[in-house]
Design a protein around this nucleic acid. Structure first.
Lengths: 319, 319
DNA sequence: CACACTTACGATATTCGTAAGGATT
DNA sequence: AATCCTTACGAATATCGTAAGTGTG
């Protein structure tokens, strides 16, 4: 047995109007078609739902019974469908993003603001986590999207290249290298390097460079803010990707590009599950991030003409 | 926008099976037809509800959203339709009958028992009321059916003849007429007649007979049981229709048919509103009553061969 | 290569709108 | 005579099942 929402709507219209012609036009149908629709409903129900003489249309007892529920059924259906439409139109929904701490603090907030202005009804959940937790959250469904680097095991994940994040030397203004326009890795020998923890994707990007493994690395911290403090205090230098440099806006800190031959970079990706599609809101966020790809590429490219780069130049907090 | 229950059922089946071919066969369809059905649902919703590779079928985020409600919507629909089917099949429902007190007490209870045995799920409401209230209850919708006589104003009512109810003389065994086989109205002259109230249909049937208006009628009571008492006490005689005679099973009371030329009767009808149809249960009750028409006609016909009728012979209480 | 969903396509069933019919006031 | 629901009927639409196509493990 089948029953369509149009039949329900026709029933409700007729129960209210008590007039085939009026109810038919309310349903944008001709009266005979409408009449047939009501009859098909009655056939499906197995009872006459309306008593009709040419002068009066009235509900039968069974019709009254049906009438008590029909409106509610229709409202329920409309509510469910409306809810889905809201999600499709991104008036509702939620997106959970997992991002590396460096991105979660500096670059993403601006994107979030943009997204929230465009889709104020969509809830945003931002998790800042190290690389592996980021990927695991996506795998487990705790996050829809990750903005992170790749790890060895990318099983079940789809990684869309987002940008290349080039590393810079960060040192205090009284450091011997502070006045250089560019710096070669070899010149760093003998300096105390301040490292992030081994779970950090920044650290992992550096680890792959054999040249650096020989450097003194007795300082290892978890947060970029600490690196800022340590560098300002003159305790060492650090190598950090451009997207973290917003943290180093300090008058005594200098940010210096690496020489072309010495360039280090980390690749950042938009990561999602390969077997599950994103929600409408998730897809919108994903595409908003992707649309930033060009902007990011331009910002992060090393420009040989730039000379010494001040932190403020790279990523103004007011995006 | 339209949406059919079959689409809902297909969605639920696929969400559970996660397999087009299996879900299709569960819906008694071929797989391509089922596939098209799902697609039509997705088109209606405006979103893809399932992620399908050739190897896996999974709900999309919007599909999961829909899934939370689809089963409920379907259950609601089935409940409503099932309820109507129950009413059509007379497993549920209610019938309100208004009947003249004489019928409500004597004849109807047996009919009620029959109906209740046949349709135990249907509630029965019996109102005993005088003629006019009976008709008004039907007019107002407080009763579906009335078993009563006609009144002057039968507007908006349909009256189906049910039976003719012939009057009998009721007197005590020591009354001069007690030994007669039949009685002529003229023979009643000079006797004290015990009347029912003016609202009674019995009284109204008698009132139309000019012969009786000359009789002494100083005793007027409301209930038949009182008539029984008065007659037994030797305070008078009464004229009552056969369907009330079950009340006069007393060793000292005699029930005597009226002579053919003196016959008085009241006509009883099944009465319903002419502009509203009966519910399934109501119709069933109506037809059960109609089916009694033959039986009643036989019972109530005056049989000239019967001679003096004892009350016990006419309507045994144990029906 | 076997399984599983989609596409293609002709046949069937439904639904629609126009026009005529019938009933009621 | 006017109103209003039903019936009749040809046209448009939708749905179905069979068969071929495509993609994945």
């Amino acid at each position: 047995m089948n029953l369509s929402s149009r039949q329900l709507r026709a029933f409700v219209a007729l129960a209210q109007e008590k007039h085939f012609t009026k109810a038919a036009s309310r349903c944008h149908q001709t009266q005979p078609a409408f009449s047939a629709l009501i009859r098909s409903l009655e056939d499906a129900a197995g009872v006459r739902l309306f008593d009709r003489t040419t002068r009066r249309v009235e509900l039968t007892p069974e019709g009254r019974l049906f009438n008590e529920s029909a409106q509610r059924l229709l409202n329920d259906l409309d509510a469910v469908l409306g809810d889905i439409q809201d999600h499709v139109a991104k008036r509702k929904g939620s997106v959970a993003v997992a991002a590396l701490p460096s991105l979660a603090a500096g670059w993403l907030p601006g994107i979030y603001a943009q997204f929230h202005e465009r889709y104020p009804g969509v809830e945003l959940h931002l998790h800042d986590a190290l690389l592996m937790p980021c990927l695991d959250m996506v795998r487990l469904g705790a996050a829809d999207i990750a903005v992170a680097a790749k790890s060895g095991d990318m099983n079940g994940l789809h990684a869309e290249p987002l940008c290349e994040d080039y590393f810079y030397l960060v040192c205090r203004d009284d450091h011997p290298l502070a006045q250089h326009e560019t710096v070669r890795l070899a010149e760093l020998k003998g300096n105390a390097i301040i490292h992030l923890g081994k779970g950090s994707s920044i650290r992992q990007s550096l680890a792959s460079h054999p040249v650096l493994s020989g450097l003194n690395g007795f300082l290892e911290v978890d947060h970029l803010a600490t690196v800022t403090g340590l560098v300002t205090a003159g305790l060492g230098i650090s190598l950090l990707p451009s997207m973290t440099l917003f943290q180093f806006k300090h008058e005594r800190i200098r940010v210096i590009p690496l020489a072309p031959r010495s360039r280090i970079k980390r690749s950042l990706y938009l990561i999602r599950r390969s077997d599950k599609s994103l929600s409408s809101a998730g897809r919108a966020f994903y595409e908003l991030l992707l649309s930033q790809r060009g902007v990011l590429a331009q910002r992060n490219d090393l420009n040989p003409d730039t000379g010494t780069i001040k932190a403020a130049d790279t990523f103004p907090a007011s995006s």
